[in-house]
Every structure is written in C-alpha cells, then in structure tokens.
Design a protein around this nucleic acid. Structure first.
Lengths: 204, 204
DNA sequence: CGGGATATGATGCAAGTGCATCGAAAAAAG
DNA sequence: CTTTTTTCGATGCACTTGCATCATATCCCG
C-alpha cells in the first residue's frame, strides 16, 4: 500500500501559509507557488490536498473561523467565577474583534474574505453561517448577563448583539487600516459595553 | 497642435469602470484590459491616463472617498431647519455607512480597499486621511447636537465618534457579506444613535 | 524482501497579466 | 492644404498564473 501522510496536518499547515501570505501581501498576491513555498511543501502536494485554488482559500477561511469560535468557546468555558458575566462579554467580543496583538494576521484574512464575499457564492455562505453563530453567541451572552442582573433588563438582546458585532468588526477594520491602535479600539469597545451594564441605580 | 481630450472626464469614467469591476468581481479580477473595455476606451487610453495600475486604483479610491464626503457635506449644507441636529447625525452616518441601496457599489469598493490596505503604503495613507476627516466631521456633529441640547451633555464626542464610525463600517461590512439587509442595518444604527440623544427626563 | 499502489515534485502548457513600443490617425496652426 | 504635435489603438513581450501530466521515489502489506 502507499505512502501515508497526515493530510489533516498538511492542510492545516497550508492554510496557515495562505493566511500568512494574505496578511502580508493581500489576497491577490496568493499564488499556488507562493503558498507551496511558504508551507515548505511542493506545488504538487498542494494540488493533491485541494482540488483547486478556491477550495484552498475556502479551507483557509474555515480554518480561521474555526480558530476564532474555538477561542471564544474556550474563553467562555474557562469562566467559572460567578460575577464574570460582564467581563465575559467584553473578553469574548475582544476575541471576536481579533483585537489582541497576536491575531492581527487572522484579522487581515477575515477582512480580505469579507471584502471578496460578493464575488463568490460559497464564500458568502460560509461567512453568513459564521456570522449567525457569532450572533447567537453574543445574544446568549447578553441574556446571561441579564439573568445575573449585570446587563440592563430593558435591552433587546438581538439588537444589541447586532450592534456589538458590527462595532467589533468595524473596530477590527479600523485597526487594520491604521486608524486606531488595538488598545484604543479595545477602549472604545469596553466603553460601549459599559453602557449596556446596569449601573448602581443613581437617579440623581 | 494635437488632438485635445478631456482628461478629467476620462479619468472619472475609468475610475467608475474600476469601481464597477471591483464591485462585481472583486479586486483581483481587475485587469487593465477589463477596465478599458468597461470604460469603452482602448487600453492605450488607460495607459496614458495613469502611469501604472496602482495609480489607477488609487485614483479610483480617491474618487470614491471624494464622492462620499461630498455627499455628506451636501447633506449637511442642505439642512436648515433648526431642530435637525439629531436627524442630521443619523442621516450623515447613514451616508458614511453607504447604507442606501444605491451605494452598495461604493461600499464594495471601499471595503476592498480597506482589506488591501496593509499591502500598500500609499493606500493606508489615503485611508487614514479619509478616516480622520470623517472622524472630525462626526465629532463636529456630536458637538453641534450637544449645543442644541439634543445630544447628551455627558458624552465624550471623540469617543462617541469613534464608536459611531466603527459601527457604521461594521454595518457596511455586514450588509455586503449578506448578514443584514441595509434596512436592518439602518435600524441598528438609528437605535444606537437614539441612545445618545437626550431623552425627556423621565426618571421613573 | 519484493510488489504494487500511491504520493511526489518537476515540468509543460495555455491563458492572462502589466507594461513598452510604434505606425497611424487626428486636429490645431501656418 | 500642409505641417507638426499629440493621442490612439493595436501589437509585442516577458512574465506569472492555475492546472494537467508523468516519471520517479516512497512506503505498506503479504
């Protein structure tokens, strides 16, 4: 029987290479040859892993989205202290916005894909699905915060989730475009979230 | 002497063609030949107007940004009724977010450029400048609203402007990605703005 | 320790790219 | 009408792209 290779691992590495290239030189600079070189494999190997370039890019996108939601989930799972509903909300949204210094690469890639969404049917499908998931997650977080009396009761979780998600994505874009530092963006995000929280009922 | 041609008009038409192509098939699908065909001129004409492709793309970007801020300014100039500070704010931000049905093309192009910003030095410069202008505009609008007692006094105009701009851009992206309709996005935007307004002091 | 199935990576190939070149056309000035 | 100066549009060219092909190397099973 034939040589056996760990395809999953290879696909992963190739997806990483794709992301690196997109982040450094933009999406249109991604060629199969460059990807192969970046991933330290030959072009033939890339061609065996993915039927064509579009499949490869789509896999890279799913690789990213999975990474993001995985981290968000882990953040949520790791929370045990009871008071944490509001901080949980901020932290999760900071994750979604890819605002920590380490994930600018992923932010680049995400934005590149969003920008190219209208050009590809499948791409929009993947993005839509991911957005739906994130939306549900944020709705859940808000409801949870309302249960623990940390988040204002008179807020519409659905509407607030849409606002938060859009704000997060916008901040991501602004950071990438060089209009903000990521810490400034974080401050803006935090400030918005603070307004959603139940403040000590001072009705002066 | 030679044949004379309205270069400004031609550049304009070419920029339009570039935007149409970007909106329909993404940025990487833009080739000089396609642009020439779309603009109904020959490739030579395009080459005479712009030294190279990057210059052409940059001009198209500036074409868009100018268009946007022009419309925003016009909207502001056209406002005369005294009570309009808050509606002026919403309308202007709706313009900035490119949420009306007619400007999805421009929204596509804008997002495409933002996504590719990290790959080009000049591009980031243009984007930064535009963002700065928009930011100043929004700050001014908020201050104006505070002067007319429509906007809460205890808000930091700078911070709120950053939030609003990011929210607008995020909503734009969400609409383009198919996650929202533009009317839904408008509702989200309006809802956020409403919260910034001074409500009739009912402290029940 | 072969046999044979499979992965591999170099090469080929047609299509498309941005840009340079150049004869020809066009229009203003004489 | 001729001249001259500029633009036009086509063609050429070197290069890259995504994908197909194929001899070779590689490894598992009997």
């Amino acid at each position: 029987m034939p040589k056996q290779v760990d395809y999953e691992d290879r696909r992963q590495r190739i997806a990483d290479a794709v992301c690196t290239l997109i982040a450094s030189s933009g999406m249109e600079a991604v060629s199969l040859r460059d990807v192969a070189a970046q991933a330290h494999v030959s072009m033939g190997a890339v061609q065996r892993c993915f039927r064509n370039k579009q499949d490869m890019l789509l896999f890279a996108l799913e690789h990213i989205t999975q990474h993001v939601s995985e981290r968000a989930d882990r953040r949520i799972a790791a929370t045990s202290t009871p008071e944490a509903a509001s901080t949980l909300l901020s932290h999760t949204l900071a994750e979604i916005a890819l605002l920590d210094e380490g994930s600018t690469k992923q932010a680049h890639v995400w934005l590149a894909f969003v920008a190219q969404a209208p050009a590809s049917e499948k791409l929009t499908a993947v993005l839509h699905e991911t957005y739906a998931k994130l939306h549900d997650l944020v709705v859940w977080l808000i409801r949870y915060g309302q249960d623990t009396q940390e988040v204002r009761q008179n807020l519409d979780p659905d509407l607030e989730a849409q606002t938060l998600l859009a704000l997060a994505d916008g901040l991501t874009a602004h950071v990438l475009a060089g209009h903000h530092t990521s810490t400034a963006a974080l401050a803006v995000l935090q400030h918005h979230i603070d307004r959603l929280l139940e403040d000590p009922p001072a009705c002066s």
